[in-house]
Design a binder for these strands. Structure first.
Lengths: 151, 151
DNA sequence: TGAATTTAATCTCACATGAGAGTATCTTAC
DNA sequence: GTAAGATACTCTCATGTGAGATTAAATTCA
């Protein structure tokens, strides 16, 4: 574990590298569960999942929450509105930023995906005991906090 | 930590979601260190780092190691060859798959980036004690193994 | 209040990515 | 040994992404 800070770099221990690889694999494998079956892109799924969990939000808030570019969010929202999976309501505090929320259909769709998601993750972490998982999540959030300091 | 498998999904605890967010932030923040200063794209950096650590490899092997698409790898390799940062040697076992390795210049470039990378990660994990980091890496590799089973 | 600045969202455009075809080479099976 | 299939890589093309301009609305400040 002692790494020579001067001349070598072990990619397996280097987080921007190995975490990206693992995250890509996860996202790819999990997205198979909703991509074709529910005809959702990754950004669309992310919008739905956030609205489901946190309720009414603006596009900007979704960008910040889900680490999405404004253009990507704008397109995802537009398409979900067309499909009537989400609803836009005028924001009394700011006419530019309308309040988005799930429609009945959007909610129904989300309710179909949630059990699949939970099952999928249960399989993923089946090699870990609950203490180890808890510890992992905890460390993850420390790293996340650190990254957000510099922003 | 007990999640209702039926109806709710907590995104903060959902790995394909939160890990992707964190990995994106990491990669983005770290890549600032080499993008402009050394004029490298992310795929180019990944090729260099892998050749530095593992020595002579084919493009296909780099794809597998670094979770890269074949086109992305092909373009990164082409550009690094043009810049004389890597060298292609004919593979006696397979004329299609030439053996790639770092040139002297490529090595020099890598040696400049390594200390920056190690410093960067040291900052990132400065909130963790070494035991916690070790445990985190260990769990990460379990997750990685699990994902690779299904491939 | 009005002018200047900031902000949310969309639009435009350049670019990177990944799927699929094409080419060359290697492997397998007969 | 040869034909059929698989594989490594490149190329082409359609698509998604993100940077920057634009527009409309909100905020700040004089």
């Amino acid at each position: 574990m002692t790494t020579d800070k001067q001349t070598t770099l072990d990619l397996k221990q280097f987080l921007p590298y190995s975490l990206t690889n693992i995250a890509m694999q996860m996202s790819e494998q999990f997205s198979e569960l909703y991509q074709q079956q529910f005809d959702l892109t990754v950004p669309q799924w992310r919008v739905i999942a956030n609205l489901a969990q946190y309720g009414e939000r603006t596009a900007k808030e979704l960008c910040d929450m889900a680490q999405m570019d404004k253009s990507t969010a704008s397109r995802a929202v537009k398409s979900l509105l067309t499909r009537n999976l989400i609803i836009a309501k005028e924001n009394p505090k700011d006419k530019r930023a309308s309040l988005l929320s799930l429609s009945v259909e959007g909610n129904r769709l989300h309710e179909q995906i949630v059990p699949l998601a939970n099952e999928w993750q249960a399989g993923l972490v089946s090699d870990l005991d609950s203490q180890e998982l808890k510890q992992f999540m905890n460390t993850l959030s420390k790293l996340s906090n650190h990254l957000n300091k510099n922003v």
